[in-house]
Nucleic acid binder design. Structure first.
Lengths: 209, 209
DNA sequence: CAGAGGTTAGTCAAACTTGACTAGTTGCTC
DNA sequence: GAGCAACTAGTCAAGTTTGACTAACCTCTG
């Protein structure tokens, strides 16, 4: 599953009630169209699909006096709220290769109570360590594999990525333990946007070919 | 674009001539169905699509005496070979968030002459460093952003990922410079498979939720 | 006020992805 | 030698993604 559902549910949830274009604008402001599949068609599709599946309640706004295309506003149902938290928890603990999922989850992490967020991140670290242990039991990343098969480089890339992921996760756990940020149930939270200059992250750089 | 075209082109190319099921088996042996979208439907779709676009030449194998479904064999056209090398070069230098692309490219890196591979990887490092420079010019990853906006964590995650990516790339460059592996034009290359125990990397671990 | 260009809001066809399904062929076992 | 599993090879419908397109309004500018 892609990150679109988590992003759309989270964005609708922050508004309470929102129509497609608002979500689209929010996510564009996050730069999400650059590092995830949060593009117009996908957003509208996800809204309709999740409404059909009972995660969102659709309100046909009466065609306002100003005309324009008919709008539909959405809000989370109880099932939608459950789904949002489920996706958020999964995205934080799953150690698969989905950077857009993890990024989205970090964006919504303050929607969780602090102890739960920390617990989920600890599980992430544990999963990464366990995976590393299993893999290197069969394959030793020796420093002098020079003559060996180049496919070992794939293993090396993955192990390196896992180690880095664990390191970052440990850092975040530490910051959360020291009381960083305002989490769910800790009072008024500011609306969050990406810092200036972050609009163009990794994605879609011009190729140097 | 996903990694499917690079994987399929590269697999067909290694065989010279192959039909869908062979490709499917090869990629499954790589474990590619675990960490990329190399699944049956996508493979057959990619083969047909690329044949239609002139990247592959399709040969309808005469319905063999043994019966069974009609098979089609494919081989790369000149355009296909160009496309393969283009995708491979792009995948090595592009610093976007596509681990499956990079993994596939590492799998085929020996199809490039050594100096070119090293040059491409140097560009990757340069692109990562430039990106980091640009981003941190606007956003300082200070150690004590504790009271700040949690969205800064996304930046921190990305910068950390970029640094790690650069580190791994530098390591690979060094190994290549020391003469590791047998590259294009350097004689007979062994057929490569993933090492035992690597079948189940990051992807699709059971959730601990 | 005509027309250019931007904003708001959403649709659509074409392409891609998924995984369950078909259907024949061997191989193995009792 | 019947039955069943596993292998070979591929198809298909349903769902998802993409980005170009529509279409109305809004706001300048001359």
């Amino acid at each position: 599953m892609s990150a679109i559902r988590l992003l759309v549910l989270g964005a609708v949830r922050q508004h309470g009630r929102a129509h497609g274009y608002q979500i689209r604008n929010d996510l564009e402001f996050w730069g999400a169209h650059e590092w995830s599949n949060a593009k117009p068609g996908s957003i509208y599709h996800a809204l309709k699909q999740m409404a059909k599946q009972g995660l969102l309640r659709a309100h046909d706004v009466e065609p306002s006096t100003v005309g324009g295309p008919p709008r539909t506003e959405y809000e989370l149902t109880d099932a939608g709220d459950t789904a949002f938290h489920g996706l958020l928890r999964d995205a934080l603990t799953a150690i698969d290769q989905k950077p857009d999922m993890l990024t989205s989850a970090v964006g919504f992490i303050v929607e969780l109570p602090r102890p739960e967020a920390i617990e989920l991140l600890r599980r992430r670290v544990a999963a990464l360590e366990e995976w590393r242990h299993e893999v290197t039991r069969y394959w030793m990343p020796s420093e002098d594999a020079e003559e060996g098969d180049h496919i070992g480089e794939i293993m090396r890339l993955w192990v390196h990525t896992a180690d880095c992921g664990a390191e970052w996760t440990r850092g975040l756990i530490e910051r959360l333990e020291r009381g960083a940020y305002v989490m769910e149930g800790e009072g008024e939270r500011p609306l969050s946007v990406l810092p200036i200059g972050a609009k163009n992250p990794f994605a879609d750089r011009p190729r140097q070919g």
